[in-house]
Design a binder for these strands. Structure first.
Lengths: 228, 228
DNA sequence: TAGATTGTTAATCGATTAACAATC
DNA sequence: TAGATTGTTAATCGATTAACAATC
C-alpha cells in the first residue's frame, strides 16, 4: 500500500510510462473513470501482463475486480516521472528543427515549457519566434540561471554539438536532449539522451527488407560483393 | 566466410547498426583505412565486445590482429540495412516539423531522398519548399506511384494521423514513420515506427529525478498523495 | 456468492559482457 | 615468432509473458 521504497524502476518500464501517461490523458479527456490493464494495454499497443507489471513497480494502485482509477493512476505516473512540476527547457539552434520543437505543442502541454531560444547567428539574435526572444549563445549562462532552465535541447548540426553541450553543462543544465547525429560526451551526473531522426528510417529500411525476404521477394541490391 | 545464410539479426543489433554506419562514415572522411572494435566502440559509445558481437551477425568481416577495413565494413552494414539503394520518402504535413524534416540533410545523405511533400491545406498546395512542390492529400496515390515512394513520414497532429496512415497504406507505401503522438494501427506487412519527441524529455525527467535522489537531494514535489 | 481483474510468480527468452582460443 | 585483435563461448543479467492465487 505504501509507495515502493527500495525502488528501482526498470529502464524498459520507464520508457513505457510516457505512453501510458498519454493514453490515460486521452481517457481522462473522454471522461473515463477507470480502465483495466487489458484496455490500457490495447490502447498503448502492448501486452496486458506487461502493463500490470510496469504499474506494479510504481506501487499497488489498482483495484482488483475493477481496474485502475484514471485520475489517480495518472497522478502516480506523473509523480514517478517527476512531472508534477514544470521543467523549463532551452533550445539551442533556431533552424528548422529548433523552430519545429519550439512550436511543438507536445512539449509545453506535457510539462516542458520552452523558456528560451538561443542561436549564435547575429542576424537571428534579438528577433522573436512564437513570442520568445532569441538570445546569443554567449548569454547561455544567464539564460539558464535567470529562467531556471533544467534541460538543454541541442538542435544544431553535428559539427558544433559537442561545444554546445560543453556550454550547456557549464551553464548548469542537468539534462541534455541531443538531436545532432553525433555521440556526445558529458560529465558524470549530467543526463543525456540522443535522438537521431535518420536512424529511425534506417531501422525501418532493415525491417522492410526482411519482411520482403520472408515472402521470397528478390532484392537485387542485396547480392554481389565489392572488391577484396 | 560466406555471408550468413540462416540469418536473423537481433533487434538490439539492428538498432545499433546505423550508429556504426555514421561513425564509419566519419572515419572514412578522415581517411582511416581500418578500425579496431575497441576504437569503433569508443566512438560509438558502446562496449567493444558488443561491437564484435553485433558485427559477427553480419558475417566475418574483420581481420584478426588488424581490425575492420572501414570501406568494406561500411558496405556490409549498408547492405544489411538495405541501404545500397535509395528509398524515396513522402512527408505528409508541411508544418514546422514537416519542413524541418524536409530540410534535414541527414535524410538525403543517408539514402532517404525526400521525393514529395503533401499537405491538405489548399493555401499550401502548389507552393514550393526547398524546391519541392507541395501536393494535395488527394494526390497521394499518384505521388507514391509516380515517384516510387517506399516510406511515408507522418508529421501532422495526432488527431489526423490514423486517417493519413490509412491513406498511405492504400497508396501503397510499405513503411511508415510516425511523429504524431498516437498509437497507429496498420495492416500486417506494413512496417511502422513511432517517434515521440516529448517522450524523450519525459524519460530524461525521470533519470534526472533519480540521479538527484541518489545524492540525497530533497524533491518536494515527490511527496504528498492526492485524494483517495 | 459469482465475476472480474489485479499483483506476483516462475518460466522463457533475449541482450550484455568478460574471457580466451583462433588467427592475422 | 611476438603482438594484436577478431569471433565465439558461456555466464549473467534484464525483459517478457502466461498463469493463477488474492481480492475487490
Amino acid at each position: 500500500m505504501a509507495p515502493p521504497s527500495g525502488r528501482t524502476i526498470p529502464d524498459a518500464t520507464v520508457a513505457r510510462l510516457p505512453i501510458y501517461q498519454r493514453v490515460l490523458g486521452e481517457l481522462q479527456d473522454r471522461g473515463a473513470a477507470t480502465v483495466s490493464s487489458e484496455d490500457l494495454a490495447e490502447l498503448s499497443g502492448v501486452n496486458a501482463a506487461k502493463v500490470r507489471k510496469d504499474l506494479s513497480f510504481l506501487g499497488s494502485y489498482g483495484i482488483r475486480g475493477v481496474g485502475y482509477e484514471v485520475d489517480y493512476l495518472l497522478f502516480q505516473i506523473r509523480n514517478a516521472l517527476g512531472l508534477t512540476q514544470q521543467w523549463p527547457v532551452v533550445i539551442v539552434g533556431v533552424g528548422n528543427l529548433g523552430r519545429a520543437l519550439a512550436d511543438y505543442a507536445g512539449f509545453t502541454s506535457r510539462g516542458f515549457p520552452v523558456a528560451a531560444l538561443v542561436d549564435d547567428d547575429p542576424a537571428k539574435v534579438g528577433t522573436e519566434h512564437v513570442g520568445i526572444v532569441i538570445r546569443a549563445l554567449s548569454e547561455l549562462r544567464d539564460v539558464v540561471r535567470d529562467l531556471d532552465v533544467a534541460i538543454g535541447v541541442i538542435a544544431i548540426p553535428a559539427s558544433g554539438a559537442q561545444r554546445v553541450a560543453d556550454l550547456l553543462v557549464e551553464a548548469g543544465v542537468s539534462s541534455i536532449l541531443n538531436f545532432a547525429p553525433t555521440v556526445l560526451s558529458v560529465p558524470d551526473g549530467v543526463n543525456l539522451r540522443q535522438v537521431d531522426l535518420a536512424v529511425e528510417l534506417q531501422i525501418l529500411s532493415f525491417h522492410r527488407r526482411h519482411r520482403n525476404r520472408e515472402r521470397g521477394a528478390v532484392d537485387p541490391a542485396a547480392e554481389s560483393n565489392p572488391r577484396r
